[in-house]
């Protein structure tokens, strides 16, 4: 217990020796952890949204009103016979009008102005595998009953591809800043260790174990990293809470992410930070203590 007091006291003494470097280290860890936290959270949000979209309508075929309703029915039957298709829903003009009214209920001027006759009937298709949307488009091309085809799969693919690119870029950036934090921790510890070289030598002569000598340095690295990560995680949680009520939430994105996901992410980040600090301290003082 007495030894622990010594270790804790010396951890704070060490940190007071190089305050600027300590702050720089914490900031680097903070930025890196914040990037990791927000990137992973953002990816989870995008995945939630896209999976919701993927479970909905994948292809919408707008029908040419000049063609008879019998032709529309035939087309629906043809589509229903395709093995890739799970369900086809016939959406009438009046249903399209109802949907339009719901979607634009906040814009009464628009509802007054619009001529609902221009809204086409459509077939809304749900596929077993959303990736098969291209197949449906190919088969429907040139069909006289078809006016226009829209596939959500394409948009989802583009969004996922964009998300993946963003996640990759942010991960690389977070990795680089994390590496900078690693170097900063090593430098901070080495500076402290060199400043305390005489003290370390005396401790070794007296009979202090290597672990005992190392502990203040290990605690310092872990503490600096944990402070940085804790602030980052706090900011990340705050940012997500803010996003839920901000303009972002009014967009097509639904900012929903489970608390259990965020808690797990927080715990994983904090645990990784402890390992990170431990490893950095091990590398940082290995040479100094072996002198």
């Amino acid at each position: 217990m007495k030894k622990l007091n010594y270790v804790i006291k010396n951890t704070f003494i060490n940190m007071r020796r190089n305050p600027l470097l300590v702050i720089a280290t914490m900031l680097a860890v903070l930025v890196s952890s914040f990037l990791v936290f927000t990137t992973l959270s953002a990816r989870a949000i995008v995945e939630n949204n896209t999976s919701r979209w993927q479970n909905g309508v994948h292809v919408v075929i707008f029908l040419d009103d000049r063609v008879t309703s019998t032709a529309h029915k035939q087309l629906q039957e043809t589509l229903e016979n395709y093995p890739e298709v799970r369900m086809v829903e016939y959406f009438t003009k009046s249903e399209a009008m109802d949907e339009f009214k719901i979607l634009f209920k906040d814009q009464p001027e628009l509802l007054q102005e619009v001529d609902f006759d221009i809204l086409p009937t459509s077939l809304r298709i749900n596929l077993n595998n959303p990736a098969d949307y291209k197949l449906i488009i190919e088969r429907m091309e040139g069909n006289a009953a078809v006016k226009e085809i829209r596939a959500s799969g394409e948009a989802i693919e583009r969004l996922l591809s964009l998300t993946n690119t963003l996640v990759l870029s942010a991960s690389i950036f977070a990795g680089l800043i994390g590496f900078a934090a690693f170097i900063l921790i090593i430098n901070t510890l080495r500076l402290t260790a060199y400043a305390k070289k005489k003290e370390i030598k005396i401790m070794r002569t007296i009979g202090a174990s290597s672990t005992y000598i190392r502990l203040p340095f290990i605690f310092e690295a872990i503490l600096e990293s944990l402070i940085g990560t804790s602030i980052a995680v706090g900011l990340g949680w705050g940012f997500i809470q803010y996003s839920k009520t901000s303009f972002i939430a009014d967009s097509i994105f639904d900012i929903t992410i489970s608390d259990s996901y965020l808690t797990n992410l927080t715990l994983i980040l904090l645990f990784s930070t402890i390992l990170f600090g431990f490893f950095a301290s091990f590398v940082g003082i290995r040479r100094v203590l072996n002198d």
Partner: peptide, 13 residues
């Protein structure tokens, strides 16, 4: 090496 501190605690240097 891990026992060196035990030795040194018995010595004065």
């Amino acid at each position: 090496s891990w026992k060196i501190p035990l030795l040194r605690r018995k010595l004065g240097i």
